[in-house]
Amino acid sequence: MDISQILANGIVLGALYACIAVGFSLVWGVLNVINMLHGSFIILGGYLTYFAWFYLGLHPVITLPAVALLLYALGFVVQYVFINKVVTAPVLTTLTLTFGLDMILYNLMTVFFTATPRRVTLDIGSVDIAGVVMPGDRLIGMGLALLLTALLYLVMRGSSIGRAIVAVRMDRQAAALMGIRVNRIYAITFGIGALMAGAAGAVFAMVFPVTTNLTGTFLGKAFVICVIGGLGSVPGALVGGLALGIIESFAGYILGPQHAITVGFLLMLILLVVRPTGLVGVKGYE
Rank of each mutant, 00 (worst) to 15 (best):
Y186I: 12
L105P: 04
D128C: 05
P235D: 12
L231A: 02
L148S: 08
M134E: 11
V77G: 02
A52K: 01
F113I: 13
L269F: 12
L105W: 01
L195T: 12
A164R: 01
V239C: 04
V182D: 06
L152H: 07
I83N: 02
V127T: 12
L7M: 13
K85N: 11
W28R: 03
A52I: 09
I261T: 15
T116K: 15
I140W: 15
L70T: 12
L97K: 08
G14P: 13
I246H: 15
V22G: 05
F265H: 13
L122K: 07
T110E: 14
G45D: 07
Y153C: 08
T93M: 14
G158R: 14
M103E: 01
M109D: 01
G75N: 09
D123M: 05
H38A: 02
L214H: 01
T277Q: 09
M170F: 05
L92I: 15
F54Q: 15
N84Q: 09
T114I: 04
F204L: 13
G252F: 05
I165G: 05
Q173V: 06
V207G: 10
L74I: 15
L7D: 05
I129Q: 06
D2L: 12
L269G: 11
L272V: 10
F250P: 02
R169D: 04
M36C: 03
L74H: 11
P276C: 11
T49H: 00
A68P: 11
A150W: 10
G29Y: 01
F190N: 08
A260Q: 06
F223N: 01
G125T: 04
N183W: 03
V81P: 04
V77P: 09
L64C: 14
R184L: 10
A145C: 11
L279C: 05
P276E: 02
L214K: 07
M134P: 01
F250Y: 07
Y50L: 13
I261S: 15
G198H: 10
I225P: 14
N9M: 08
F41S: 11
N84V: 02
R119Q: 15
E286K: 14
G230R: 03
R157H: 07
P65M: 05
T212E: 09
S249P: 00
R184T: 10
Y253F: 13
I43Q: 00
V203L: 13
V91S: 14
G46N: 04
M156N: 12
V234P: 04
R181C: 00
P117I: 12
A200E: 02
G162S: 03
T93E: 00
V78R: 06
R157K: 12
T277L: 09
G141K: 11
A15E: 08
G10Y: 09
V274A: 02
L152R: 09
G201C: 05
V227M: 03
S126N: 10
A130L: 12
V86W: 10
V111C: 09
G229T: 06
I104A: 09
R181Y: 03
A251P: 04
V30P: 13
